[in-house]
Each structure stands twice: as C-alpha cells, then as structure tokens.
Amino acid sequence: MSGFEIDLDEIEGLPRPMRQYQAALLASNTLPSPDTGASTATTRAAIDRITALTGSFATDLDQSADGLDAVVATYRSTDGQMNLWFEQFQAAVIFE
C-alpha cells in the first residue's frame, strides 16, 4: 500500500461542488464588451481573454471533478487492491 489510504465516502462528495461552481463560473462568463471609445476593439480583446481564462479555470474544475470520480470508481473496482505502481499511475495520469 506504501502509505496509501483513502476514505471513499469523503472523496466521492468532492466532485459535486466542483461541478456546481464550474457551472456558476460558466454562467457568469458571458461578459458585455462596452464602447470605450478609441479603445473599443482592444477592450473586446481583453474581455475575450478574460472569458478564456475563466473558461480554463472552469475546465480545470471539471477535470478535477472527473479525476476524483475516476479515482473513486477505480479504487472501488479494485476491491481494495492497490499498490504503489497503480497509485503512481493515478497520480501521473489523472491530475496531469
């Protein structure tokens, strides 16, 4: 086991708020681009950049939720069998 322990009941509850906040982020991520005069086009580009950055955060929350789901599903499917090699695979692959 190499120090591996997991309380699946605790961990399986984590993805839900991640997805809720991801949805809230995406819902708030449609921003108007105001007329700022001579800089209006550059303002539009900045707004687009902000929405892209926030979208990336939302994507990472989704990835995190998926990763935790996968961890729980995988650990359940192993019926408690776990070892360092597989642990490291999880570490390397899911939360890359």
Partner: peptide
C-alpha cells in the same frame, strides 16, 4: 476540497491532486 482530501486520502495520487 483540498483540505478535505488531505484528511481523507494519502499517497502519491492524493499528493498529485
């Protein structure tokens, strides 16, 4: 979530998360 995970999960996959 990270704090909860730290208290309920240990090992390299937990560290990765």
């Amino acid at each position: 979530s990270m704090r909860t995970a730290c208290g309920a999960w240990s090992g390299s996959s937990s560290d990765a998360f």
